[in-house]
């Protein structure tokens, strides 16, 4: 199988998994879940690091820098805020 087709294959299966993964969510968790999956969408940081090669031109490196900076804000901010929200539940939870 052509590797690119394999990637498309995986994309389709992953999309279906995403549809099935979430079915019932209590309203309490809507905001934390959104914020938590928002942090996960910062996974693009992996792509940002891959394109940050020293062999790229200066302009490509600047773009890579911007990509890493934006993705890091997304990841770090997203996870910390989600933890903060969930932490406030925990205290009272049990």
């Amino acid at each position: 199988m052509d590797p690119i087709f394999l990637t498309i294959f995986v994309f389709v299966i992953a999309s279906l998994l995403g549809f099935e993964l979430i079915n019932k969510v209590p309203p309490t968790l809507h905001t934390p879940l959104m914020s938590g999956s928002n942090a996960i969408s910062g996974i693009t940081i992996v792509g940002a690091i891959i394109v940050a090669t020293a062999s790229g031109g200066i302009f490509a490196q600047i773009l890579a820098f911007l990509a890493i900076a934006c993705a890091t804000v997304n990841v770090v901010g997203g996870y910390m805020v989600t933890d903060r929200m969930l932490g406030s539940f925990k205290k009272k939870g049990k």
Binding site: L6, T7, V10, F11, A14, S15, L16, L17, G18, F19, L21, I22, N23, V25, H30, L33, M34, S37, I40, S41, I43, T44, V46, G47, I50, V51
Partner: peptide, 25 residues
């Protein structure tokens, strides 16, 4: 989509997961 651009399957998979589970949410 950026995973397809740079050819990284993990990006493709995790992005798709967030994408479709986000639609359900």
């Amino acid at each position: 989509a950026s995973g397809f651009v740079i050819g990284n399957p993990m990006l493709v998979v995790v992005g798709a997961l967030v994408g479709t589970s986000g639609i359900i949410l």
